[in-house]
Design a protein around this nucleic acid. Structure first.
Lengths: 115, 115, 115, 115
DNA sequence: GTGGTCTAGACCACC
DNA sequence: GTGGTCTAGACCACG
């Protein structure tokens, strides 16, 4: 785990993208803090912070002593999808347009790097 | 100025994108710390940190007094362009592909949000 | 069971106060972990931790099976009594005196809240 | 700093008692996180947590980069006084009564330890 | 210098 | 084993 944005936000995004991709579905168990923290090489508390925010968005449900589960439905999933895509697209658009890159060139770059 | 990444990194990117866009060219004066700070509503110390990193990459040079100048050439500019574009494109590709979005859908989204 | 200090310490105090009060005497059986846990609404592990500390202070002894017995005598009981009372009194004295409350006012407050 | 209750709660109490005692008054500057943390030998974050709670109770006011000030008035001060005294008295009463100590003996103990 | 936030590790209570 | 909380240290942005 690295990058400019806080680790817990990266984890948050990663899980949300998994939801959108359909890799994570309703009632799935989440890996425990310890397991995921060992996997990613970060502190369990950092995982906990990400999980906590997912819980605040009611995408997961946690109880002390018990494992955490996804609590998804169609509506929530679609909301997450919209949120992520819009933010991704706007990011790349802002960046490339400030650099004076045309829509055509951007399309070409996507073609180039896609595979 | 806001967003997830540290402000001084955002400023760094902002200037680099200006270079790529050709808005900033060799020998241009940079706005003084004080002026840019007022412009962006950011603390001068934060501007200072960004300028310091540009200096470390030899993109600017502080001559006499407090004024800094761009020290660009073809090679550096091209390097920056490659660096930024590749990173932007790869970011959005990684994100959308993890979400299971097709190249076609991505193109459509860019069309939608371009204007 | 709640409050600022860890639950197992609260249980420890609770039992010690029972000893001082004479409600608990030498050779008394302690309720089993399971029973006390149900009584207090606390996890058996937490009870276990408190019992373990009583054992370390040699106030109880675990004989055959899961049942523990008090191993008290005059000296131990008196020690516990001194320890608890002194600590309680000093606590309230330190608190009220830092607040600038006079001995007289403190006495009045005790009268007020006693029943 | 030691004791069973969390350090940040101890600091919270300590400051509140200072308010009640009149040692801390409206508009007083608080020691900075670093200063107080060095003084008490705890982490600056622990101080911050206590300060944060005081801010939530609107007893102090903090702004990034600037020193923190007390924002007290008669009403708040009196509320804090009531809150602290009641809790102190009830604590000692619960403890001594569970031990079977009479009101008279409690009074005597207070006399004994007062000086 | 100040306060705010992120990351990290240890401990508590529950299952 | 699980999640929850407290303490700690480093870094960021501000004055």
């Amino acid at each position: 785990m690295n990058g400019d944005s806080p680790i817990y936000l990266q984890i948050l995004s990663y899980i949300k993208r998994g939801i959108v991709a359909g890799q994570i579905v309703d009632n799935d168990e989440l890996p425990s803090r310890r397991v995921l923290s060992a996997l990613l090489g970060v502190n369990p508390n950092t995982i906990q912070k990400a999980y906590r925010m997912l819980e605040d968005e009611e995408l997961i449900s946690s109880r002390s002593g018990a494992i955490s589960y996804m609590t998804l439905d169609e509506v929530k999933t679609q909301q997450v999808r919209e949120e992520l895509m819009k933010s991704d697209i706007l990011n790349v658009l802002a960046a490339t347009r400030q650099m004076g890159i045309s829509k055509t060139e951007l399309m070409a770059l996507i073609e180039k790097y896609w595979e």
